[in-house]
Design a binder for these strands. Sequence first.
DNA 1: CAGGATCCCACTGGATACTG
DNA 2: CAGTATCCAGTGGGATCCTG
Lengths: 129, 129
Amino acid sequence: MAKVRHSRFDCTPGCSVEAAIGLIDGKWKAIILWHLLAGTLRFNEIRRQVQSCTPRMLTNQLRELEDDGLITRKVYAQVPPKVEYSLSELGLSMAPILRSLKAWGDANIGLYGKPLGHDPRDLQPGGSA
Amino acid sequence: MAKVRHSRFDCTPGCSVEAAIGLIDGKWKAIILWHLLAGTLRFNEIRRQVQSCTPRMLTNQLRELEDDGLITRKVYAQVPPKVEYSLSELGLSMAPILRSLKAWGDANIGLYGKPLGHDPRDLQPGGSA
DNA sequence: CAGGATCCCACTGGATACTG
DNA sequence: CAGTATCCAGTGGGATCCTG
């Protein structure tokens, strides 16, 4: 990671499990990555997918993801502004993690009384947040 | 989850990605689960594997994992006390997630200047934290 | 051995208002 | 549209000491 903005990495050296979760912690990162798995999105498009995330937090999380090299930020010099976020190679390489998270959630979320729509689209990023 | 001790679950209903990460957030849970994947461990055995986790936090995280149904706590009525922690069925079902996290970390941790031992034992839980 | 209790502070993150 | 700025509450989590 470029700047160690988040100090959550004090595990013993060489702990790859911590390394990985350290990048997708922070309440929104995993879902953001998940949605970007479906393709490039603009700022407000992400907001719409992750409604309960405030603009401030969204910016924050996107910046950390960018600093960690997981996503790419492309700014179009125009008015009104247009900024596109997409997964980098490294971000794409996290797909297995994201999919296993999704798969587990799909299989087990019902146990917690949380009804799951089982909407087929849910199996693809871009579905409900 | 039994008691919603941790309030981190305010995503839109049906978000299975959030559901899954919500259970393994909290700085230590993923590593604890990882180590338990290798088999039953006692309190201080876990402490040794996750040195930088204080007893208080370890208790805390273990309790949450237990409340979430991911681990099982077996207390032996004896002196000195003996408590064993092991993965429940549900906890075991998270193995794919944990393994994908580990795999990703192994493949990419080097990019961050964190040297990786590439110790073969690292591929199995029970190795270095 | 396996924790519980208490103190305390840093950071997380929400609400709201403003801007290029 | 895509953020920034500021204020502020809640809590995550460390340090330390105590106990059945």
